[in-house]
């Protein structure tokens, strides 16, 4: 094994991790604020991919405008889902919301299959995104760099928003304690809706990036990345934005190195490895890498 081989695998892992990170942020935000594992999150990721396909391939929008459309589409579906399925059952046991989110996932997937079929579709991107850039002993594609940069920029913007704006503070307060936040005059309905909107918008952008990198999307594409992003969120420490990002990169890296460094017959165990890692992390560090340990996870 050469250094270049290791380096290229590390880059592979980082790119995959960046996409996990973006999906994981949404998971983490929503979990942080309403203690809900939103199973439909992976399908919103797929919605984003199709919104991108629609705006680039059908409506022929320029790329930056397409990103905007994707963000809006994700936010809109997120809001819709929150309004229809989660708001009416707020206050119910956690499990209720979890099941509702599974139901929403099934509805979204079947609607997609009924209207646009489960056929995978080609996702064409501008040629310059596919160009190879030499980087020391290896070469990297522009799209890979773009993915990592975009993930980091969006994360930084989000962290800034949550930390330094009034709305961001209100969101944190809501996450900390519903009741007290409400007493302080914070409109918690709006905060929860906002968390859904932002989280879903980021997942939708991840869908766009996924399409751009792999060139193919399908209505059922969200299931596995969605679950893995959840694992990433847990590894990082659920509820923490920077934790979700860290978790995403760690998981992407671990997954690729698992496949890349072990003999090839282990490659097919990569999903098993991801979930085994989840169980392991939860046992050793129940609060994740940088999660807070304020609550007993009951």
């Amino acid at each position: 094994m050469t250094g270049a081989y290791l380096l290229s695998q590390i880059v592979n892992g980082l790119v995959l991790g960046a996409m996990y990170a973006l999906i994981a942020i949404g998971f983490s935000m929503i979990y942080g604020i309403v203690r809900l594992i939103n199973f439909a999150h992976g399908d919103i990721f797929a919605v984003g991919a199709f919104a991108a396909l629609g705006s680039i391939a059908i409506a022929a929008l320029p790329f930056p405008l397409a990103v905007l459309v994707v963000l809006l589409a994700g936010a809109l579906v997120g809001l819709l889902v929150e309004r229809a399925a989660f708001r009416p059952m707020r206050g119910a046991p956690q499990v209720t919301g979890f099941i509702a989110s599974l139901a929403v996932a099934i509805i979204l997937e079947n609607l997609a299959v009924m209207t646009i079929t489960a056929q995978p579709r080609t996702f064409a991107i501008p040629a310059w995104l596919g160009a190879l850039v030499p980087l020391g002993s290896i070469s990297v594609r522009v799209v890979d760099i773009a993915i990592i940069v975009l993930a980091l920029v969006l994360t930084a913007a989000l962290v800034g928003f949550v930390r330094f704006t009034r709305t961001g503070m209100a969101m944190r307060a809501t996450a900390e304690n519903y009741g007290v936040a409400r007493l302080m005059g914070i409109n918690i309905d709006r905060m929860i809706a906002l968390a859904f909107a932002i989280g879903s918008a980021l997942a939708a952008v991840a869908g766009l990036m996924w399409g751009a990198k792999y060139g193919q999307i399908s209505p059922l594409m969200g299931t596995v990345p969605g679950l893995k992003a959840f694992v990433a969120a847990v590894i990082g420490g659920v509820g923490s934005i920077s934790g979700a990002v860290l978790g995403g990169f760690v998981l992407g890296l671990a997954e690729v190195l698992f496949v890349g460094l072990l003999p090839s017959e282990f490659s097919a165990f990569r999903n098993a490895f991801v979930f085994a890692a989840l169980i392991l992390v939860l046992l050793v560090m129940p609060n994740g890498l940088i999660g807070k340990s304020t609550e007993t996870r009951a």
């Binding site: 290229s8 695998q9 995959l16 792999y214 690729v256």
Partner: peptide
């Protein structure tokens, strides 16, 4: 969907 590790190998 990610074959990057296999490609590098």
């Amino acid at each position: 969907q990610d074959f990057s590790a296999l490609v590098s190998r």
